[in-house]
Design a protein around this nucleic acid. Structure first.
Lengths: 210, 210
DNA sequence: GGGTGGCCATAACGGCGTTACACCCATAAC
DNA sequence: GTTATGGGTGTAACGCCGTTATGGCCACCC
């Protein structure tokens, strides 16, 4: 702070400082340490800064969520397409799990209600829908090739989303008590078996050309 | 207090009063209102009573969880057996969803981390395992009749548990903003489609006698 | 020079979980 | 009957939390 010359004043952007501090605290110390006072102290300002730039803790968490959903959607989008939409769907599911395990704190805040009383704003829900649309798009593609009997894309997408979300949530929730590596391979195998089984069960009974 | 005659003193059981008050507050006002002060006020004692009888808020929440898991396991156990283990598994899944929707606040506390910093004690996790064992038992029964290829019961059980938990969690989480009846039937249909598909996909490829 | 308004630190308010302290009072011991 | 003991409890406080009223600083513009 003291030695900040005028060479690229780097704009003492309080807003950015606060956001960076919040993400660091969340990542290093977990959700229970994410308090306005601690964030402000780490950002080098008073608590009032959080209110000036984010309107309060809710706004700050919204900003964190926005960041999380964007990175999450990016990770899903990077799951490169396979030959069949069904293969792509599997790839998306694997990418989903990998991102969740590598960004556990973010995932807990985004999908497991880790920040107590928070309800996400409308903008957040829109960005969250982006990831769902990626999934839904592949489902529609599979349907248009007559790979799936069920005609409602949302029903199929919800089935897959629910399975992936449920398994990942259980894995993250149960990982805390005992971080055994044995559990990890068990969860990975369950994940794969369940996904393949669900896709098998959704397959068209009379495939046109398989 | 003043007019309490000696006719059935009804044992001014502070512990029971507190537990009843906590369950009532949780049910009527939600998790955010579950504070030691409010519970104590409703129970007609001071905050110290919660510490005398439950050791603190964590102990109180543990007692609430114990009650919830017992009722939950009862509900699953009452899903009467069908002819096939696969049918019983479907019945259990439906019972799971029904109980979760009818006991939303309890479910959120038990499986969705609705009470902020709480980590359940060992006893609680044991009771929670009861419900899992009911599911696992039917999976083993299905395996012993060669209805399922996968040989690891826990893998299959985890797949089904994850699917049910994930879909129910999404349904409960998304029910708050818009309580449309249309959403309800959509979630019910997704639930059924997904479960049947998963079971189909798990079915033995070469059934001995089906 | 005299507004004007954005940004911020201080200090406070009410509420939270928790606890030190003192008190009541039923029982036990003599 | 007197005294000691100890469990249950009310009061008031501590240190957190999110939030905000107050007022000062300072760059800008007339």
């Amino acid at each position: 702070m003291s030695s900040a010359k005028k060479v690229v004043p780097s704009i003492p952007d309080t807003r950015a400082d606060i956001l960076v501090a919040a993400l660091a605290i969340l990542h290093e110390e977990g959700h229970s340490s994410l308090t306005v006072r601690r964030v402000a102290a780490r950002a080098g300002c008073s608590t009032i800064g959080v209110y000036t730039w984010f309107g309060g803790k809710d706004g700050l968490v919204d900003a964190i969520l926005l960041d999380g959903f964007r990175r999450f959607a990016d990770a899903l989008a990077r799951a490169r397409p396979r030959r069949s939409p069904l293969g792509t769907l599997l790839g998306q599911a694997v990418a989903y799990r990998r991102w969740a395990l590598e960004n556990r704190t973010s995932y807990e805040v985004m999908f497991m209600g880790a920040v107590p009383g928070h309800v996400a704003g409308d903008e957040i829900q829109l960005v969250g829908l982006l990831a769902y649309e990626l999934l839904r798009g592949e489902v529609v593609a599979a349907q248009s090739r007559n790979l799936i009997d069920e005609s409602d894309a949302d029903t199929v997408a919800m089935a897959m989303w629910g399975l992936v979300h449920g398994l990942v949530s259980l894995e993250i929730a149960s990982a805390e008590p005992k971080g055994l590596a044995a559990r990890k391979s068990f969860h990975l195998r369950s994940f794969e078996v369940a996904l393949v089984a669900l896709e098998q069960g959704l397959l068209a009974k009379a495939p046109k050309h398989r």
